[in-house]
């Protein structure tokens, strides 16, 4: 009893910390143009690799660009595109999962075997393969990540719809004359969405990791756009003399991903949701 209260308190704190950090990051991403001290892609070779100063609080990189500004603008890319992937993958997964779960039978079997096929590959390998086919570039990476992530949503939603279908309230709704569309809209989606959104919080962390990883490999964000993964890539040539060039974006990725995971874990613990 006491320990369960303690767990509840702990997860309450985790939810608070996680969401506060994330709120701060999203705020930074939105306000970047106003709070950044310099233009993030303004090259100034005279000032290259300069130490922190009043004008450049975190110094400059090998092209004399302001590190702080690049970090702040990088939040836009990471959080913005991770959110886009999340929304698109969730939307697509919701459609496919609902169809599979509601229709059942052959349609369900075909769709779910396809999802399992996608899940059988390590995520990043599959994404690399798709990016290899589509060619490097931010939009291609976003597409590839979406194509891989929707299956997790689809499967989770499908399983929940199958469980809901057996519930008496769905049968009662049918008997009271509600159409299939209305049953899905009014009774299924509202019951499916909350746990899926919790899972989505964890998936957002993955999306940011993968996005940065692909940019680090030179497949995602192309120069001169500021992005954390790409910044690590550019900084790696100066790892001996200027390790902070890699360290700053690394810390940013770490913080954001940890925040998403802490929040996601705490929420799923609080609501008793099984993770993927």
């Amino acid at each position: 009893m006491i320990s369960s209260i303690r767990i509840a308190r702990k997860s309450q704190a985790a939810i608070l910390i996680g969401s506060a950090t994330l709120a701060a990051f999203f705020l930074i991403a939105i306000l970047a143009p106003w709070i950044a001290p310099n233009d993030p892609i303004q090259v100034n070779l005279v000032l290259k690799l300069s130490p922190p100063s009043f004008d450049y609080p975190l110094g400059t990189d090998h092209l004399g660009r302001c590190n702080l500004s690049r970090l702040l603008y990088g939040a836009r890319v990471s959080l913005g595109f991770a959110s886009l992937i999340f929304v698109a993958a969730l939307g697509f997964g919701l459609v496919i999962g609902t169809i599979a779960g509601y229709k059942g039978g052959v349609i369900d079997a075909v769709l779910m075997r396809f999802c399992e096929g996608v899940m059988a590959f390590p995520n990043l390998v599959l994404v690399l393969g798709i990016v290899g086919l589509l060619g490097p570039g931010l939009w291609q990476v976003v597409m590839a990540l979406m194509m891989v992530q929707w299956v997790y949503y689809a499967r989770m939603i499908r399983n929940m719809i199958v469980g809901l279908k057996e519930q008496n309230f769905i049968l009662a709704a049918r008997i009271s004359g509600s159409s299939t569309g209305k049953i899905i809209r009014r009774h299924m989606i509202p019951n499916v969405l909350p746990p899926v959104l919790v899972m989505g919080t964890l998936e957002m962390g993955w999306a940011i990791m993968d996005l940065s990883a692909l940019s680090f490999l030179g497949l995602g964000v192309q120069p001169p756009t500021a992005e954390w993964g790409a910044m690590i890539l550019e900084g790696k040539n100066f790892i001996r003399s200027q390790p902070e060039l890699m360290l700053y974006p690394g810390i940013m990725i770490l913080l954001v991903v940890i925040s998403f995971n802490v929040l996601g874990e705490a929420l799923s613990e609080k609501y008793g949701i099984k993770k993927r």
């Binding site: 519930q167 008496n168 309230f169 049968l171 009662a172 709704a173 008997i175 009271s176 004359g177 509600s178 159409s179 209305k182 009014r186 009774h187 509202p190 019951n191």
Partner: peptide, 28 residues
Amino acid sequence: LQVVFQDSFSSVNPRMTAEKIISEPLEN
């Protein structure tokens, strides 16, 4: 032809108010 089931809790959508539950057949 309507129905009342044994388990009253599983027969209603937990996310709907009594008003929504009872008005569903009327809306239809």
